[in-house]
């Protein structure tokens, strides 16, 4: 479906998601335009992966709207979602490679399923994609036989197999050494250059974030704390943002490890959370 050149590739409006009575995504709205690289940052457990899952339609929001390529994804049926998904690639935080297939077969999978290319052509493409992530020669290994960082890169090669218009990566560089991180960043930059591809990247790695981002969003407690260009974020007066990008332990971001908070409640006995069956096995002195 053709989208007008200037309309956003992704449009998230008033997105809310609750698990039980915990609000994990609390009223988030933002747009991503064609050719942009949006970096999403935020503390561990603040809902970044969950936000991605809602954008790609594998979770349904409690309320709000998500449009990809101008089409509302939250109300689509399976068939419609599948046709949208052929246009984007996704790298999972865990890699999510199929354990029963080799590295090469994993990368080949979307090509075998969605193109009419001959097996020879597909092998050539797989070879090329693996080379881009620095993994040529590893085609025949199983996911269990490669390292965590290698799994990430195979996942990235697989996400790129169909030359998607839109790439989602959930922490593409976690577990990679600084040189490989730079290689992966260069790859993202190259692919998004000249508006060929749009990227949404979740990362904790500030060097990498400032290297690739054209725009950044920082999440906290399920809502957007700050957003803007890398320069705006770098010079943000918001102390939470400064604490996060400079990686300081002291600051306004609550870490749930401060001592004084507990001292306030010391007269209240905390709720027991270790089940009785585990207590039973404990040796008593």
């Amino acid at each position: 479906m053709p989208t007008p050149a200037d309309s956003p590739v992704i449009e998230v409006v008033d997105l809310i998601r609750k698990f039980g009575d915990r609000t994990v995504i609390n009223d988030i709205s933002f747009n991503v335009r064609r050719g942009e690289t949006l970096v999403i940052m935020g503390g561990s457990g603040c809902g970044k992966s969950t936000l991605l899952r809602h954008i790609i339609g594998s979770m349904k929001p409690t309320s709000g709207s998500v449009k990809i390529f101008g089409q509302e994804i939250t109300t689509m049926n399976e068939h419609e979602i599948a046709s949208v998904r052929r246009r984007f690639g996704m790298l999972f935080q865990s890699g999510a490679l199929l354990a029963s297939l080799t590295v090469g077969e994993n990368v080949a999978l979307p090509l075998l399923q969605h193109t009419d290319n001959s097996v020879d052509e597909i092998e050539e493409i797989v070879e090329e994609k693996l080379q881009m992530v620095g993994l040529s020669g590893f085609e025949d290994l199983k996911p269990a036989e490669i390292s965590g960082g290698m799994k990430k890169r195979v996942g990235l090669a697989r996400a790129l197999a169909l030359d998607p218009e839109l790439l989602f990566s959930d922490e593409p560089t976690s577990g990679l050494d600084p040189i490989m991180t730079a290689v992966v960043d260069q790859l993202t930059l190259k692919l998004t250059h000249g508006e060929h591809m749009t990227a949404v990247v979740v990362t904790h790695d500030m060097t990498s974030a400032f290297r690739i981002a054209t725009r950044m969003i920082m999440l906290g407690h399920g809502s957007i704390v700050a957003q803007g260009t890398p320069d705006e974020i770098r010079n943000s007066p918001n102390p939470e943002v400064q604490q996060f990008i400079n990686g300081e332990a002291d600051g306004p971001i609550p870490l749930n490890l401060s001592q004084d908070e507990h001292e306030h409640h010391q007269h209240v006995k905390p709720r027991p959370f270790i089940a009785a069956r585990h207590r039973f096995h404990r040796k008593t002195a």
Partner: peptide
Amino acid sequence: ELGTMKVSEEIEALEVMAINPVQY
């Protein structure tokens, strides 16, 4: 086997690649 694939996000990954897990 399918249960292990489910908990290790492989099924979700298939769906996101527009591969229907029932078909595949």
